[in-house]
Amino acid sequence: MSLFENYQHLMADAAFNLAGKPLHEDLLLSCEGSLQTFYAPFDHINAQARIVICGITPGLQQAMNALNEARRQLIKGASVAEAKQAAKETASFSGPMRPNLIAMLDHIGVQGYLGIDSCEQLFNSHRHWAHYTSALRYPVFLNGENYSGNPGLLSRDSLRHQIENHLSEEIRQLPPHCVYVPLGPKVGEVFDYLLGRGLLRPEQVLNGLPHPSGANAERISYFLGRKEKAALSVKTNAASLDAAREQLTQKVRQLRS
Rank of each mutant, 00 (worst) to 15 (best):
D157P: 13
L29V: 08
A14C: 10
Q254P: 02
V181A: 04
R160H: 11
R71W: 01
G225Y: 03
K21V: 11
T236A: 10
R127K: 14
C119R: 01
L232D: 04
M1L: 12
V234A: 15
N46C: 02
Y7E: 07
W129E: 03
A238I: 09
H128I: 09
G59I: 03
I75E: 09
C119S: 09
F42Q: 01
L224H: 05
H128Q: 14
P139A: 10
Q204L: 03
N17K: 12
R226H: 12
F4N: 09
H9D: 13
A49M: 01
H211T: 12
S30T: 12
R226C: 05
R172M: 11
A91P: 04
Q85D: 03
M11S: 08
S221Y: 05
R219P: 03
L241V: 10
S168C: 11
E218D: 10
Y7W: 02
L23N: 09
F93Q: 01
I163S: 00
F42Y: 09
L194P: 00
H9A: 15
Q204K: 06
G95F: 07
E25Q: 15
P151E: 04
A217I: 13
R160N: 09
S2E: 15
E145Y: 12
L224C: 05
A130K: 07
Y113I: 08
Y39R: 00
G198K: 00
L153E: 05
K84F: 05
P58K: 02
A49E: 03
L154H: 05
A47K: 14
R156T: 10
A86R: 10
L241H: 02
T236L: 02
G214V: 06
R245S: 11
S92G: 08
G208E: 08
G144V: 11
E5P: 03
V140D: 04
S233Y: 10
C54W: 04
G214C: 03
L232I: 04
K88C: 14
L194G: 00
S213P: 04
E5W: 02
L206V: 07
P58E: 06
R172C: 11
N46K: 01
S213D: 12
S158Y: 01
R201C: 01
I108S: 10
I116R: 08
G149L: 06
D192M: 01
N207V: 11
A83E: 00
L199K: 05
E69M: 12
A239L: 13
L167G: 04
A103F: 09
L194H: 00
N17D: 15
A231F: 14
Q250D: 14
L224S: 05
N68F: 11
S134W: 13
T249C: 06
A103K: 13
Q8M: 12
L248I: 01
G109E: 07
V187A: 06
E89D: 11
N17F: 14
V252M: 10
A70H: 07
Q121N: 06
P151A: 01
G188C: 01
S155C: 11
